[in-house]
């Protein structure tokens, strides 16, 4: 395993009210479960994905594009886990004006 392993990708916030308290807490909790660091970047601003305070003040609203960057031996798994949160929309229902399938 490569201790310097680094993985990155982009996600879009689909939550109606943006990345608010409870989704932010889910990210922090998930990221803390890995050794890898997680940097979240919005525009020029980079924050620590393991810090609730940082995530709250990042104020990522709906439609916002975020770059996620994980670094460390389990970076790949960490990134996958966090991306999965975004993909499931944090277990919350999508806003009604978004496209529903079927």
């Amino acid at each position: 395993m490569n201790p310097q392993s680094s993985h990155a990708c982009e996600v879009v916030v689909m939550l109606e009210h943006g990345l608010h308290l409870s989704p932010a807490a889910q990210i922090v909790k998930t990221a803390q479960g890995f050794r890898a660091s997680l940097i979240i970047q919005k525009g020029d601003r980079k924050i620590d994905g393991k810090s609730m305070l940082d995530l709250m003040t990042l104020a990522a609203e709906r439609g916002c594009r975020l770059r996620l960057e994980a670094e460390g031996e389990d970076a790949e798994q960490a990134l996958k886990a966090v991306v999965a949160l975004f993909e499931s929309n944090f277990g919350l229902v999508l806003p009604s004006n978004s496209q529903a399938s079927g």
Binding site: L21, S22, A24, A25, V28, S51, M52, L53, D54, M56
Partner: peptide, 14 residues
């Protein structure tokens, strides 16, 4: 979950 988020905030080492 609301309080869980508050707790994460309080425990944030930053």
């Amino acid at each position: 979950a609301i309080f869980a988020a508050h707790r994460e905030l309080a425990r944030d080492p930053k």
